[in-house]
């Protein structure tokens, strides 16, 4: 699980172009949206694509994303339970 969390942080920084951020800046329970990392709606769509491309998870209901993308902890837990690759 820790390896997955590390991988998620690296992918988020790279794919969402968080230029001034490093892995150590993201705590496992930091809010990804709002007052946390400050991600926006386009970032949310990128995260949905990332789930599909990297882990074979298709979110059919975008509303599910709200809970899944709350933090690195929630993302890692959801991916661990639902990944197909």
């Amino acid at each position: 699980m820790e390896a997955l969390k590390q991988e998620l942080k690296e992918n988020i920084i790279e794919q969402l172009n968080l230029e001034d951020m490093v892995v150590a800046d993201i705590a496992d329970d930091d809010m990804l949206f709002g007052d946390g990392l400050g991600l926006d709606s386009i970032d949310a769509l990128e995260l949905i694509v990332m789930l599909d491309k990297n882990y074979g998870i298709k979110l059919t209901d975008p509303k599910e994303g709200r809970a899944i993308f709350e933090s690195i902890n929630t993302m890692a837990a959801y991916i661990s339970e639902n990944r197909t690759k």
């Binding site: 969402l16 386009i42 970032d43 990128e46 694509v49 599909d52």
Partner: peptide, 9 residues
């Protein structure tokens, strides 16, 4: 087929 929303916009 993984179009990037961040590119598309």
């Amino acid at each position: 087929y993984y179009p990037s929303p961040a590119v598309f916009v």
